[in-house]
Amino acid sequence: MNAAGTLPAWAALLTALFVLIGAAVTLIGSLGLLRLGTFYKRVHAPTLGTTLGMVSILAGSVLCFSVLEARPVVHEILIAVFVTLTTPVTLMLLVRAALYRDRTEGSTDVPAAEVAEDLIPPA
């Protein structure tokens, strides 16, 4: 901790709390990848890391740098906005690809396509 030597006590403790909560939530989310049984259940797990985990760690970073540099350092908001907008896109694409693959293989675990057009993937 060479660079953070001037951080006041309250900011250091609050940053520690934020970072620990964020890392723990992210770990639980990734643990879900191991514990959940099928792909459709596993797809729910990483959203823990991309919502509360990310926001908490970024909040710690914002607090730490804002106090250190004595001015608002908020460029972490960019990462938050970016991740919030992109994660749903990747997860939805992934689930639709998985559903399409399962349907073409005739799996009975997924709801069947109601019309033949559903089997043709969207362009």
Partner: peptide, 30 residues
């Protein structure tokens, strides 16, 4: 299956990104 692997890769990226942010706090470098 392939979709599980891609999901793992996506999670790996997000976790690595958060890891870099914690490195930033540790070294005090933006």
């Amino acid at each position: 299956r392939a979709q599980d692997r891609i999901l793992g890769l996506d999670t790996l990226y997000v976790n690595a990104m958060l890891m870099l942010v914690t490195f930033g706090i540790r070294t005090g470098s933006t």
